[in-house]
């Protein structure tokens, strides 16, 4: 019978796959993989410590391919230290979020290392950025950049575009598009984050609000209709974006 003290702990998130190998109760090897990229050893352990919630499985009697950690109390101390550091960082819980430069610019002062990171992270998932040597340091830089507003983390929206017919809404104001309540709710469920609407042919991004009884329609205010040169009944492709 296995004592359960030797084996492999498998942790899987949609973007990362982590393994922690135990041998006689000692953590001897850790590895994190995402596509082609692989991280091993202490950095991998640091990264796995930062995952807040993920499904896992323990496979007993699986031996490590090699040893990257010394085991013993040093590993436990390292884990405790990493956990304490992660606790001080405010990164989004979902590492599938994509990093991007904010649409609205502003002035911030950044060090050379933060600048280097900032230059490399646009359009990448958090998990992908953290999967590199010096994970905790990268996490700290990301935390700083996000706190300063130099970066923003948004969910990757993969909602197919919808074709809608333009419906004039008569009233003051502009920059607001209305869609049917049901469609709005469907998008909100899929995105789980604040979102706006991109009008495909015009390439304009507008605030989107739900409105009852307009299935298949895109309600646009008179001023926007004039600005976008759209008329009642025009077919417009729209896609929500974060």
């Amino acid at each position: 019978m296995s004592t359960g003290r030797t084996g492999r702990l498998l942790v899987r998130t949609p973007y990362l796959e982590g393994e922690v190998f135990l041998q006689n109760g000692q953590v001897v090897h850790a590895r994190v993989r995402s596509g082609e990229k692989v991280l091993e050893g202490e950095d991998a352990l640091d990264l796995l410590t930062g995952i807040k919630r993920a499904p896992y499985r323990f496979e007993p009697e699986v031996s490590p391919p090699h040893t990257t950690l010394l085991g013993g109390l040093a590993v436990s101390a390292r884990l405790a230290e990493a956990e304490a550091q992660w606790r001080g960082l405010a990164l989004p819980a979902d590492w599938g979020y994509v990093l991007r430069l904010p649409a609205r610019g502003g002035a911030v002062e950044l060090g050379p290392e933060a600048l280097r990171v900032l230059a490399q992270v646009e359009g990448k998932r958090i998990a992908e950025v953290l999967l590199a040597p010096g994970t905790l340091r990268l996490a700290r830089i990301l935390h700083t950049l996000l706190q300063m507003g130099a970066l923003e983390a948004v969910p990757l929206v993969e909602v197919p575009p919808v074709s809608l017919l333009v419906l004039p809404i008569y009233g003051p104001g502009s920059g607001v598009a209305y869609v049917d309540e049901a469609l709005f709710a469907e998008w909100a469920r899929a995105i789980r984050h604040g979102f706006r609407l991109r009008l495909k042919p015009a390439g304009v991004v507008m605030e989107v609000r739900p409105r009852p009884n307009i299935p298949g329609r895109l309600g646009l205010l008179e001023e926007d209709l004039r600005r976008l040169r759209l008329r009642r009944g025009d077919k417009v492709e729209v896609v929500p974006e974060v």
Binding site: L165, P168, N213, I214, P215, G216, R217, R231, R232, G233
Partner: peptide, 13 residues
């Protein structure tokens, strides 16, 4: 609202 909407007469709500 009327003559301008005739081309979408096949689309109801």
């Amino acid at each position: 609202e009327t003559l301008g909407a005739i081309r979408e007469r096949a689309y109801g709500f």
